[in-house]
Amino acid sequence: MSEEYVQLTIDGTPISVPTGTTLLDAAKDVDVDVPVICYFAHTTANGLCRLCVVEVEGARMLQAACVTTVQEDSVVHTRSPKVERARRTILEMLVSTVDISESPELQELVVDYECYPERFEGGKKRQPAIIDDNPVYLRDYSQCVMCWRCVQVCADDAQFSYALNFSGRGFDTQIATFFDKPLPETTCVFCGNCIGVCPTGALKAKREHLIEQGVAPEKVMEFTRLKGKKKKSHNSAG
């Protein structure tokens, strides 16, 4: 099948890309960096974080670059005042909700967009306790930005284990197992895909965590093995 091309302008630079290309990929072609949080090349794009929004002249509202495909003769602005205002506000709301201390990319964005999250001081945060219920990894959902990648790779995007879904709704949505059960009691196969795709410190390998806590690398096995044996007698831990 011969590819058809679309002409458009991104930040003043005219380019030609194949039909069906997303604005995010088209921007990369002209070396324009559009920030993303939820987008990941190997999972289905859901357009959740809206940080990648860009201004397309004539469009009713800002467009999420990760899921919007190029249109002929589009004129796209990736960092107009409207785009800046939207991105800054989303980041401020996110950072005032979630602990980003272990998310360097997010920290950089906060600086880049001159965010002032303190304006939402006193607002509700997401601060659930760390879940330590298995020998492989920890779940610290106070660092979770709700990008959904872990749920996606656990399900149809990779592993077909379906151990993870959601609890709550709206602001109080959280990644959850069936009736919030410890992972060893679920369909989780400990493939580690979710840890691999997590963009923040919300999912962390136990080994990494223990080393950070000052445990000598050669001693780590003792801790995880112990946990592994404990699992059988302490099912409801965590």
Binding site: N46, A86, M93, L94, T97, K124, F166, F171, D172, T173
Partner: peptide
């Protein structure tokens, strides 16, 4: 708010 996209999930709370 259903909690799917960040602006609504966070913005309705703020």
């Amino acid at each position: 708010s259903c909690g799917k996209c960040f602006p609504c999930q966070l913005g309705t709370q703020r």
